[in-house]
Computed example of a mutant assay.
Amino acid sequence: MNLDHPRIAIVGSGAVGCYYGGRLAQHGHEVHFLMRSDYEHVKQHGLKIRSLHGDFDLPQVLCHRSTAEIGECDLVIIAMKATANEALLSLLPPLLHSKTMILTLQNGLGSDDFLARHFGSAHVLGGLCFVCINRTAPGEIHHIAQGQIALGEHSGAPQVRTEVLAAELQRCGIQCKVEPSLIAARWKKLVWNIPFNGLSIAAGNKDTAAILADPILEKRVRDLMREIIETAGRLGHEIPLSLIDDMIERTRTMSAYKPSSLIDFLSGSEVELEAIWGEPVRQAKAAGIEMPRVERLYQELKARIAAR
């Protein structure tokens, strides 16, 4: 990463993209935001970030309606929903030069492979965001809890650039750690995403506090987590079972947090059904492993989304 004068593009300027892009801009980076619905508001009024780490405003934001308008960048951060990945085939080319890093902050499995297939594995990094964050109004972001990014390379082990990027994110107030295996880290995040994002919808539009207040639902969370951890282990990605208690206790501190999939469901937006629930089931089956609890939840979500 060129740390002297890097050009950074944010593709997917929702809550996640605006928060992390906003932090980079706050610390002096040239950050270009691809904006759709909030373009006019942000162009006139900038971004307002409310955060447990300190509120800040960006009165002037480099926002654009097209990636062609942005041009080539050193780092492209993808924070759009995985459901819209086909659009990246036309969005990304104007942003890329021979050494551009593409960092996807998307949920679930499959996005890293999709980008590597179309743009080359050497360009692709993955980041897993452990963060509670919502867009509360046009140009307004509320960062509620956590915020760490776990960073890894699609092509394998961390490189010098991985460490450099992680250090720069840290300098900009973003907690970041480098993962030795990106795919293992993705399975680890699924341990939280599959049960809480899924049950928030399947159990009747419940926030995390309501899920954990119900002993039957908490048991289902724990059973799902155990199945995911055991499946990951059989695939060669060791995750300790102690993570179950750790994740549940951390979730209790989030209070009545609405997971992003529930927000998408309630707003009528597309839910990341395949990336978070479908793809793990398919990858497990391809290795001869059944995930009955996750598959049941996947089918329940299909039905709920179809009924919506």
Rank of each mutant, 00 (worst) to 15 (best):
I229E: 13
I229H: 10
A232C: 09
K219V: 03
E238R: 09
R220H: 11
T231Y: 10
M247F: 12
I263R: 12
L243M: 10
R250S: 14
P215S: 06
S260M: 02
S255M: 11
I244C: 09
T251H: 10
S267H: 14
I216T: 14
G236T: 05
R234F: 07
E218V: 12
P215A: 03
R222C: 07
L224I: 12
G233K: 08
S261P: 01
D264V: 03
D246K: 15
R222S: 09
I228E: 05
R222Q: 13
H237C: 04
L212S: 00
I229A: 10
D223Y: 05
K219S: 13
A213F: 07
L241Y: 07
L266G: 01
A213E: 13
R250T: 10
S255R: 15
P215K: 02
D264P: 04
H237T: 01
S242T: 15
I263D: 11
E238L: 13
D223F: 04
L224Q: 09
R250E: 11
D214L: 05
D223T: 11
T231R: 09
G236I: 03
I248C: 02
S255I: 02
R250K: 15
I239H: 01
D223R: 13
L262F: 03
T253Q: 13
S255W: 07
S255T: 12
K219C: 09
A232V: 02
R222L: 04
V221S: 12
I239L: 09
D245A: 09
M247I: 14
R252N: 10
F265I: 01
S260D: 01
L243I: 06
E238T: 15
D245K: 07
M225V: 00
E238M: 13
T251A: 12
E230A: 13
E218N: 07
R252W: 13
M254D: 08
E249M: 12
E238H: 14
G236D: 12
I248Q: 02
T253H: 11
H237I: 00
Y257L: 04
A232F: 00
M225D: 01
E249D: 11
P215T: 04
P259E: 06
S267C: 10
Y257K: 08
D264H: 06
D214N: 11
M225A: 00
E249H: 13
L262K: 02
P215W: 00
D246V: 10
K258H: 08
K258N: 03
D245C: 05
T253N: 07
T251P: 00
E227A: 00
M254K: 12
R220I: 08
R220P: 04
S267K: 14
S242K: 14
D223I: 05
R226I: 00
S260E: 01
D245N: 13
E249N: 13
M247C: 07
L224M: 10
G268V: 05
S261M: 13
M254I: 11
A256K: 14
L217Q: 09
E227H: 00
E227S: 00
L235Y: 08
D245E: 15
H237K: 02
